[in-house]
């Protein structure tokens, strides 16, 4: 299992060739109460850095980008009825979508948990 983070505060957990994507705890704190999530359709091909989902808090909308390229295989439909899961468990039950990686080599450019923690600290 590999866990990686992007500078835009998405995380991706990779097992085999499948990656699960969500937003980090820091991101959900910054957003505040999440009230709506727009998820990608299964089978959609996304490229690394492309907008794949939208998360709306009370105050504002934010885009969620694909950390790596791939084909979406599943979206977390629970978020449609319970968008607050993103706040409650951002790196667990509040995941957004799963994708089949096109190129596992793209993970190399992302941060591991330690590097991401240091990155977040540098922002505050």
């Amino acid at each position: 299992m590999i866990l990686r983070y992007t500078r835009d505060h998405e995380w991706i957990r990779v097992e085999g060739n499948i990656g699960t994507v969500g937003i980090s705890d820091y991101a959900q704190q910054q957003l505040g109460d999440v009230v709506f999530v727009e998820l990608p359709e299964p089978d959609r091909e996304v490229r690394k850095g492309e907008q794949a989902a939208v998360v709306e808090s009370v105050k504002a909308a934010s885009e969620v980008y694909a950390p790596v390229s791939g084909r979406v295989i599943e979206a977390n439909d629970r978020l449609v009825g319970e968008p607050e899961l993103v706040n409650r468990d951002p790196e667990g039950e509040g995941w957004f979508f799963r994708l089949e990686l096109a190129d596992a080599g793209e993970l190399d450019g992302l941060m591991d948990a330690e590097a991401y923690r240091a990155y977040v600290e540098s922002l505050d």
Binding site: G32, D33, V35, S57, V58, K59
Partner: peptide, 9 residues
Amino acid sequence: PLQYEGIVA
């Protein structure tokens, strides 16, 4: 202050 505990709460 934008929020303390959270806007909805």
